[in-house]
Nucleic acid binder design. Structure first.
Lengths: 142, 142
DNA sequence: GGAAACCTTGACATCATGGCAAGGTCAAGC
DNA sequence: GCTTGACCTTGCCATGATGTCAAGGTTTCC
């Protein structure tokens, strides 16, 4: 093995992909259980702790928020969970992702069509600024 | 006219679509010029001020950050601006949007494929949790 | 024993926004 | 003229996920 357990926070960070800062942060906010300490106060991480950290990082990489991660963790720990509950969390998050993506795509489309009509030369005339300066809401153009 | 100028911050907010809170915020951070005040300290907004606020809201609605909005505003005010500068800002922002969209779509795809394989019933077995609990990085699955 | 690398906590920053609180102001009704 | 309610002021705290910096204790290795 490359690292013996238990490890300090830095090694746990390397092993899990979660920064020391975020590990402490998750601990402070109650997402991570409080791990053991050495007599001098250093946090020590077992293999199980590192597994939890990895779980958290994976969930975070999928964009789950802290609340959802807490729910996922408790389902993970519950060997009798119904998979339906996990799926429900996933679908809810997918919904959030879709909404966010749609927003960004709408911005992108609007901006792209404005930019397409902008000469992009030394002349000051520019449909982008004209649109931004317009009175009502935006939209309705190419 | 529905509202006489000058107006108080609340009316300016209604007229521009930027909340009073954010108007003060933009002013404090220097994005908005400091507007006139009544003797008692109330901010007063002219039609021009409201136009600036609308411009800001439109830019914000397109996802521009504060720095980019400041640049756009100064280009807007410069009647001799080259449209190329505006276009460059727009294209840079489009790039950011594309990156963000790609990230979210990647999350969505991963999560959707995991969810598709989850029974979503009373059984505890669930590929979503299994994936999150996995050791290495995520990816490589349907 | 001293230096380097690590750990601790805590404070502050980001970005855009909301909320709350304590207090001043203004307009309208009685 | 006074009360009431709506509006304004400033300022602080919170979000979410992360980073930075600082000041100080610990461990490790030479």
């Amino acid at each position: 093995m490359s690292k013996p357990y238990p490890m300090n926070i830095g090694s746990a960070a390397d092993a899990s992909g979660v920064s020391p800062k975020m590990i402490r942060h998750y601990e402070a906010m109650g997402l991570m259980p409080k791990v053991a300490r050495t007599p001098s106060g250093y946090r020590t991480y077992t293999q199980d702790d590192v597994h939890v950290l990895r779980f958290i990082r994976h969930a975070r990489d999928l964009g789950f928020g802290v609340d959802a991660m807490a729910s996922l963790l408790s389902l993970w720990r519950d060997r009798r969970r119904p998979s339906a509950k996990v799926k429900a969390l996933a679908l809810a998050h997918l919904e959030r992702l879709d909404v966010k993506i749609a927003e960004l795509v709408a911005m992108k489309n609007t901006l792209a069509s404005l930019a397409a009509h902008c000469h992009g030369d030394d002349r000051p005339q520019c449909p982008i600024l004209e649109e931004l300066a317009q009175d009502g809401h935006m939209g309705r153009h190419a």
